[in-house]
Design a protein around this nucleic acid. Structure first.
Length: 566
DNA sequence: CTAGGGTTAG
């Protein structure tokens, strides 16, 4: 909209410059606003719009933007769309401010556009506001924007973010024309909600339908491969990227490193890492954590050292990764030094995650008392602090401390079934079976269900899943036959079940041993499986790689890379 | 002026 003619160009430009200089800061903006009024420049809609946009981009002055929107006599669609868009880009969840501006827009009979709805829907997605988003969806429908490809893509992202993959897919399927962004959104929507097989399936559909993927597509499907432990498929995707001369962006390269590391091929991960010209803090962190989950503490330290010399500054997550790498490798002194340097050299305050790493580092190394005191001195211990402590107590068979830690854990989170399982495991180790029984009854009374354990294995690019007592796989008879044979053979060479049956029943650990060498599990491995696989690696003369919830175990010749500490 | 990626302990 044109400005009123009686604001001359000089007044306009100097006022505009003043606004730009003020930036998003409330005090300065108010000063300029006062100046606008005294000079008559407040009659310019463009200037007031600029003022409101600036106010919108800072958390502290957003309410000022609301006031401006209330006092302005002649707002237009650019005014409202700008405010809603800026609000949707803010990182502090201003969904109600966006809705507020939208309502003002309707109040002034200003018609919303597809821009309006993409921004509003993004706001709802950012805070997973399902109900609100659904009503925005309805408004988009009523206003005739539901066939707009941008609005549809934002709806797919929104429903995915809310975990409503069914609805997301429905919107996606109804799209008359699917942009590459829509495909990517749907693929990563599946992947981020753990539906990795669906993500891979959709990726295949995309390729087979002749759509051109871009680097973001691969980031999504590689994350899915990483979670599935699907090395063959991940490698094929990498080949596709190379053969089609797709640009390996920082994100794509990082995703490749993550995939190879999580799928057990840490050498290949390093190869990709070394080949990348541009690396950022996430790339470095991914490489460190890649070594960490394999128990390669020295290599993780080496990357960390290189990072300090030649790379970007580490962030909080980098420290979590390196501390955890130290913990898994038993590098106590190195871990302590890094923890101190985090504060002294990098001026970062330790967060609860870092404290968890320290408890884990000390506890794993057998310094149980020190770990326990460390945990007790924390002002706000999280459940994870005590989980780490209990893990250490179980590992080093310190029952008294274990019970104490487990009770602290239950006091914080009384309804988490996993915690009851941990406590009962501690009691079972102490042979206090009446306590075990009691906990089982509490769990039944509280209707708490344990997480079901499962294992997956990739054979010829297809991922097969097995869980306790599950006979759905078409080759079940043959698998069990082989399994029985394996169990018989390892018993002959000295395998004896490591724990009594009470523990098994409580942990509900599956007893499936897959036939090839790369297995992924959703829970941690139990001692019995660990022992059995050691024997299996010996009699079958195979190297077996198992990724449990936290790390890798490399079994070879009857030994495991974790050194029996995990 | 619109929609979509990568890292985190237990």
């Amino acid at each position: 909209m044109a400005d009123y003619p009686y604001i001359n160009q000089t007044t306009f430009s100097s006022a505009y410059q003043a606004l730009v200089r003020a930036g998003p800061h409330l005090k300065q903006l108010q000063q300029v606003h006062a100046h606008l009024i005294t000079s008559g420049a407040h009659r310019s809609l463009s200037l007031l719009t600029k003022l409101a946009i600036l106010a919108c981009s800072s958390h502290s002055s957003i309410s000022y933007a609301r006031k401006i929107s209330l006092s302005i006599p002649n707002p237009d669609s650019y005014f409202f769309n700008s405010l809603i868009r800026i609000t949707s880009k803010a990182k502090f969840g201003l969904v109600y401010d966006a809705i507020f501006f939208y309502q003002r827009m309707l109040f002034f009979f200003v018609s919303p556009s597809n821009y309006t709805f993409t921004s509003l829907i993004k706001c709802c997605a950012d805070v997973s506001a399902l109900k609100l988003g659904k009503s925005v969806h309805t408004h988009a429908l009523v206003n005739g924007f539901c066939l707009d490809s941008f609005v549809q893509a934002s709806l797919v992202a929104f429903y995915s973010k809310c975990g409503e993959l069914g609805i997301a897919r429905k919107v996606f399927d109804k799209m008359p024309e699917r942009s590459v962004v829509a495909w990517n959104t749907m693929i990563s929507g599946y992947e981020q909600n753990g539906y990795c097989k669906n993500a891979v399936e959709l990726y295949n559909l995309m390729i087979n339908s002749g759509f051109n993927p871009d680097s973001t597509t691969f980031v999504g499907v590689l994350s899915a491969c990483a979670q599935l432990g699907a090395l063959e498929l991940g490698s094929l995707v990498h080949d596709y990227v190379n053969n089609h001369r797709i640009e390996v962006t920082v994100n794509l390269g990082t995703s490749l490193i993550n995939m190879y590391a999580k799928c057990g091929n840490v050498r290949k991960a390093r190869e990709v890492f070394d080949s990348m010209r541009d690396k950022n803090v996430v790339t470095w962190t991914t490489m460190i954590s890649g070594y960490g989950i394999h128990g390669y503490g020295k290599e993780a330290m080496e990357i960390f050292r290189l990072m300090k010399c030649y790379g970007p500054s580490p962030n909080e997550i980098t420290f979590v990764a390196i501390l955890s790498a130290c913990a898994h490798a038993g590098m106590v002194n190195e871990g302590r030094a890094i923890f101190s340097s985090m504060r002294d050299d990098c001026r970062m305050a330790a967060q609860i995650e870092h404290h968890v790493c320290m408890v884990d580092l000390l506890g794993r190394a057998g310094l149980l008392i020190e770990a326990y005191n460390y945990a007790k001195e924390l002002k706000r211990p999280s459940p994870a602090i005590w989980t780490a402590m209990i893990g250490a107590c179980k590992m080093h068979k310190n029952l008294d401390l274990g019970v104490e830690a487990a009770e602290k854990l239950l006091a914080i989170e009384p309804d988490n079934p996993g915690h009851y399982v941990m406590l009962s495991n501690v009691y079972a180790l102490a042979g206090k079976m009446e306590r075990v029984e009691k906990i089982r009854n509490v769990m039944i009374k509280k209707r708490l269900k344990k997480h079901v354990g499962y294992s997956t294995i990739e054979v010829e690019q297809r991922t097969h899943m097995f869980s306790m007592g599950d006979k759905s796989h078409p080759d079940t008879p043959a698998i069990y036959l082989y399994l029985d044979d394996l169990m018989r053979r390892i018993s002959e060479v000295g395998y004896v079940s490591a724990q009594d049956s009470v523990l098994h029943e409580l942990e509900e650990e599956e007893r499936e041993y897959a036939l090839r060498y790369h297995i992924v599990k959703n829970l941690r491995m139990c001692e019995d499986c660990h022992l059995a696989i050691k024997f299996i690696s010996k009699i079958t003369n195979r190297e077996i790689l198992v990724r449990d919830k936290l790390r890798f175990h490399h079994f070879k010749d009857g030994f495991c890379s974790c050194g029996d500490y995990w």
